[in-house]
């Protein structure tokens, strides 16, 4: 059970959203990191069969999304959480999931309703099943969107910013849930939350300007910044990226000066080493 991309290109006018992406995804959680506009969402939408690439080959679980019949087979096997899914405000949570379950070809009413209740339960929305969507908070809507992606226990789960808008407790629970789910399926998780990647991903891919900049384990990404992170009382001028911490010291990433007070890098440091200023700007915007 694999997902393969070979030399995949996707352009929007003169912008190269994907520029020769080669990837193979296997069972487990793969984190996808990258600054805004790096091509993450485009990549996910190509895999979700929403977008067709301009060039290259995509194979999802043994099916070619270019072929209409095979595209349908892919859709039967994937769960997709879009970055900003549309909701039907007058539907109840149950009706919303029930509707999408029907579109996902769950015909038997009893089984379908059991499945709807299961995914609502998984996302902690059981007590909101009869609540209209318009009355849900942003975080609840995010969970509802996640619930629909889990319908039918898909073999390939594509999650675009799944923890955006979730409070810390829910993020923790989400990590637990995805870890459970990933035991026997492929999970591709696009996020700006490097902590999530560090916590649950077996593998991390950094994409920037439509190209894969890094493909390895979280530990390997951390290793990228080994010996390149230090603390300083003053803002260092030689650092690639620097920011003031809560203690008043300055944390710097880059080539350390002589005698610098080196510290243990995090996965975020590794990521910043790779994508630099663009990522920092992105993080600031996200905050």
């Amino acid at each position: 059970m694999t997902v393969k991309l070979s030399e995949v290109h996707k352009h929007y006018g003169s912008v190269r959203a994907l520029d020769g992406v080669d990837l193979t995804l296997e069972t487990g959680i793969t984190g996808l990191l990258g600054p805004n506009g790096a091509g993450k969402t485009t990549l996910l939408r190509c895999l979700a069969t929403v977008l067709a690439p301009d060039a290259g080959q995509i194979d999802v679980l043994g099916f070619d999304p270019d072929q209409p019949r095979e595209r349908t087979e892919i859709r039967r096997r994937i769960g997709y959480l879009p970055q900003e899914p549309g909701f039907y405000r007058n539907f109840t949570c149950f009706d919303f999931i029930d509707y999408l379950a029907i579109l996902k070809e769950h015909v038997d009413r009893t089984e379908r309703h059991a499945e709807v209740r299961r995914v609502l339960d998984l996302t902690g929305l059981s007590d909101k099943s009869t609540t209209k969507i318009r009355k849900l908070s942003g975080g609840m809507r995010r969970r509802l969107a996640l619930a629909q992606s889990l319908l039918g226990s898909p073999g390939f789960l594509i999650l675009d910013e799944p923890t955006a808008g979730l409070d810390p407790e829910l993020r923790f629970r989400f990590r637990e849930l995805v870890t459970e789910l990933a035991a026997d399926r492929i999970v591709l998780l696009s996020t700006h939350q490097t902590e999530d990647v560090a916590a649950i991903c077996d593998r991390v891919i950094v994409i920037d300007a439509g190209r894969v900049r890094f493909d390895g384990t979280p530990a390997q990404l951390i290793e990228v910044a080994a010996g390149k992170v230090w603390l300083s009382d003053d803002r260092p001028t030689t650092a690639r990226i620097t920011w003031r911490t809560a203690t008043g010291e300055h944390r710097a990433v880059g080539e350390p000066p002589e005698g610098a007070r080196l510290i243990e890098p995090t996965i975020e440091d590794g990521y910043l080493m790779l994508v630099g200023v663009a990522a920092l700007t992105d993080e600031t915007e996200a905050a």
Binding site: E73, I78, L100, L103, Q148
Partner: peptide, 18 residues
């Protein structure tokens, strides 16, 4: 309109039902 999806990021768009 709902069945077609408001945008290509809507969940119905990637549902298999024709």
């Amino acid at each position: 309109l709902r069945a077609k999806g408001k945008s290509d990021a809507d969940p119905p768009v990637v549902a298999p039902m024709a």
